[in-house]
Computed example of a mutant assay.
Amino acid sequence: MRKKSAKKSKSMKDKPAAGRTWPRMPDGAVRGTLLGLMWIAGLGGLGFGAVYGYPELRSYAASKLSVEAIEIRLPPLPAWLEVLDTGEQTGRTVEFVNGVKARIIEEISTAARARLGRDPLVRGDLIATRESLMATGWFQSVDSIRRDQPGLVVIEATFVQPFTMVRDAQGSHLVDEQGRLLPLHYPAKSRLARLPVITGVRFARPSQPGMKWEGKDVAAALRLVSFLERPDDRGARPWLSQIVEVDASEYNRTEALWLTTNKGARLLWGRPPGEERGIEVPATTKFAYLEQLHRDYGRVDRDLRELDLVTDRVYAR
């Protein structure tokens, strides 16, 4: 009986007494804990706002701007604009080139704004803007379009590279090496640097920039210009500036191309490089003829009216 009583007494001793309280935290510790929790909540709110709220604020700010007020920052204009020869006096050429630059900037900016919405969060607007810029014919590629600020759009792109010009009754028109039309036309006497202009082509120029100029005569003339222009072990070719035209007017009938000099002389070149047949000498031999003529006479035309470069000797026609 005593054992049971002792066991019961021990059990009652371990049980907490009624009304017993746990130790209280000091008031300062409570306040510190609450302040810490408030700081954590505040920082979390700032982080949430930065991630989710800032773009919305930018969107709201941009929505208050008109599309016309958005600044379009373009890549630098291509250097080839500076080497244009309009056939006019220097002052008039500079004036013309400056006017062309202003028109290019206005044309591209207008194309960008036409598809650019005011909300920077709408990705579809940027995609549509890229398509609009490519349709101008001024760019080989549009690499990125981004909004750096609500009122600023930065465009990173690569301008097309012209190769030469094709001349028709309406003027001189830039084309690339594949014969695709660029969206820029010049006065009839214009040249690009020292490269000859292609004349006498059969078909009218393409209706839109970026389209290829049709005709085997254009393709043949482009191959000849490329052969004359390409830098390689054939030398510097100081005489190339004397050749102002590649005349393709007879190509569709005889497959012959003519070179016209800056004194109006005509040099019969024959078929385009790589397509020679029969007794016609290769293009490298004709090139050597031009080198020799310039070395001996200072001019590739010898100050004559017509020369024939087709066979194994050069003779006046």
Rank of each mutant, 00 (worst) to 15 (best):
S172M: 02
G179C: 11
E156R: 13
F287V: 06
R147Y: 11
V142N: 02
L43C: 11
L37G: 14
R305Y: 11
A316R: 11
S190L: 06
W213K: 03
V244P: 00
A17Y: 03
F48I: 01
E250S: 13
Y297G: 00
N98G: 12
E95C: 10
L37Q: 08
D85Y: 10
M38Y: 11
E276I: 07
S109Y: 04
A18I: 13
T261A: 08
P183I: 08
Q178C: 07
R123W: 14
T86F: 08
G179S: 11
T86L: 15
E291Q: 15
H294K: 06
R230G: 02
F163S: 06
W239M: 01
G87D: 05
I198K: 01
E255I: 01
P23M: 03
W239C: 00
D176N: 14
P183A: 09
T199I: 14
L228G: 06
V97K: 09
K7M: 12
P238V: 05
A193F: 10
P206W: 07
A219T: 13
V100W: 06
D217A: 08
R118L: 04
G171N: 08
R20W: 12
R271L: 07
Q292P: 00
I70H: 03
L37P: 02
T164W: 08
M211Y: 11
V244H: 01
P272V: 12
P231W: 09
P162C: 09
Y251S: 02
V225Q: 01
Y60G: 13
P55C: 01
T21M: 11
Y289H: 04
E107R: 13
I155S: 01
D27W: 10
F227Q: 05
T254G: 03
L152Y: 07
A219L: 12
H173M: 04
D303G: 03
A157R: 02
E306Y: 12
T93S: 10
I70K: 05
Y52T: 05
L293S: 00
L224W: 05
E275C: 09
G137R: 05
V67D: 07
D168P: 09
F287N: 04
S132K: 06
S66H: 14
Q89W: 03
A61I: 08
G49H: 09
A288W: 07
R194I: 14
A316G: 05
R230P: 01
R118P: 02
R194L: 11
R2P: 08
E214W: 04
R230Q: 13
A79F: 13
S59L: 03
V197H: 01
R113C: 10
A18F: 13
V175D: 01
R31K: 14
G42L: 15
V67K: 12
V225F: 05
R20T: 14
G87E: 04
A288M: 12
G179W: 07
V30M: 10
L34P: 03
A169G: 09
L74K: 12
L174I: 07
S226D: 15
S63Q: 13
K7V: 14
I198P: 00
R118S: 11
G47P: 00
A102S: 15
